Computed example of a mutant assay.
Amino acid sequence: MSLETAKAKVEAYQDMGAAGDRTKRILQALMLYAPTELGRQNMIMDVNSCDDDVQLKALADRYLTGLIIPFKTMGGRTPAVSDHPTAPDADNAEQKNQGALQVVHREGKLKDRVLQRDNYRCVITGVRDPILAHNPSERAKRDPPFLHTIAAHIVPFSFAPKSESAAKIVQSSKIFEAISRFGGYPFIDELGGNINRLENVFTLTGDMHTLFGNLEMWLEPVEGNTNTYRIGCVPHFASALPYGPLITTYIHGLESAPA
């Protein structure tokens, strides 16, 4: 079934009586903003597989609890992820994820490794970490300024289980299924089950980390340009990004600076 069929089904949805029912908005956004063609097709298929408004609401709740809230929680508590209402393959993917997930803890040396790779700078603004102030030649430079930085996870650290608890592993497996289905990309395979993989962490200042964690700033890959990204943000934060629309990162090198 087509995108038009899915759109019509969502448009015909009747609020289930709860104040602030966001089902229609969530499902429309999922189909519109999935980042890959496969992700968009997955969202269209999910909507078209629903037989009634009850299933449509359950589908929206699945992505609200398994995708939107976990990304915006910034380390706080997340609600239990609801089940997918119609897709048996979601259960199979969750079972596979459970076998791949690694219990993780904060790594004391992770920030040091990320800072070195990113040339001791915020990858968005180019602001220098104070560790560079020990270098006389860096102290002599007036710009960019020195500010404390954070080793920020791209796929959030909170997504990974912190213990062998079955409930925590199931919760994590559901989150990874939801983001992989929406993204059309096997995130857990890319991470190798390890949320602390170096490619999943980059250096940000505190304010950039807040924008990124609140989904108010994001990076979009530039096709044909390796490790180059276009910075996107909600309009009222555009002035917080002083270095223009593109950044280039060097995942396996020692430098990371605004383009």
Rank of each mutant, 00 (worst) to 15 (best):
M1G: 03
S2K: 08
K7T: 10
A12R: 08
Y13G: 03
M16E: 15
R25F: 08
P35G: 08
T36V: 05
L38G: 02
Q41F: 02
V47F: 11
V54H: 00
Q55L: 08
L56T: 05
K57T: 04
R62H: 15
L64V: 13
F71E: 01
F71N: 08
P79S: 10
P85F: 01
A87L: 14
D89A: 13
D91T: 15
E94H: 03
Q98D: 11
L101R: 12
V103K: 11
H105V: 14
R106V: 14
E107M: 13
R117H: 02
R117E: 06
Y120N: 11
I124P: 01
D129R: 02
L147W: 04
L147S: 04
S158K: 05
S158A: 15
A160F: 07
P161Q: 07
P161L: 06
K162Q: 07
S163W: 05
A166H: 08
I169Y: 02
F182T: 07
G183M: 03
G192F: 06
G193L: 12
I195M: 01
T203F: 05
H209T: 09
G213D: 13
G213N: 10
L215A: 14
M217P: 01
L219N: 04
P221M: 07
E223D: 09
T228S: 13
I231N: 10
A238N: 02
A238L: 09
A240K: 12
A240Q: 11
Y243E: 11
T248Q: 11
S256L: 07
